[in-house]
Amino acid sequence: MGNFEQKVNKFIEIFLEEGGYVKVAEGLENTLMIAVAGLLIGIVIGTLIATVRVLPKYKLLPRVLNGICSFYVALFRGTPIVVQLLVFYYVLLPIIGWRITGVQVAMLVFGLNSGAYISEIMRSGIQSVDPGQMEAGRAVGLSFRVSMMKIVIPQAVKNILPTLGNEFISLIKETSVVSFVGAADLYVAFNYIGSNSYEFMVPYLVMALIYIVLVLLISLLIKLMERSLKKSDRRN
């Protein structure tokens, strides 16, 4: 095991003395920022799309909107995230002349992408809420929008929280491809350490460890949130 010790020592040396930890902290920050921003944008887009898809369909406008939303979902679920990143960074954004950094592009693309997935999650959540809740809201004179926002969606979110947590976890892991557009995430940081020491085993193992810890922390957070949201279910 002398060899392994040597590798660990080399890693620690670069990590502490040659600024490796700065890179890792930066990478961690970017990874988390992309995942959180992606989730937030995704929830907003997903909720909007899900609402459009459960609208009553006997008028023209909801039908047109519904068509647009189906197309959007098909587009973003039908192509790999790497392709979407590349297309946005090298094709779409240069065409419209919008200059933003790799991290910002990644936030945008991950948001748009997870919006497509979250819309389906949210739709199933909304449909799992008893239609009587919406009817009761409408019956006391609240509009569709208000009944949706104040009554149906809070209950839907409670139902889908575990699935939403899953989505966040997979977002965190998927962000490891953002180096395609030059965003410095965890992978880039550890790759930097590895290529400086010509030794990849320990950096990559540590990287795996960090991802696992992140995911475990998030699962814990979701569990706590779920418990506080269960308030209205508990009998006392």
Binding site: Q133, A136, V140, I151, Q155
Partner: peptide, 11 residues
Amino acid sequence: MVFQHFNLFNN
């Protein structure tokens, strides 16, 4: 309006 299944807002 009062419903058969009450439909109180659960949240």
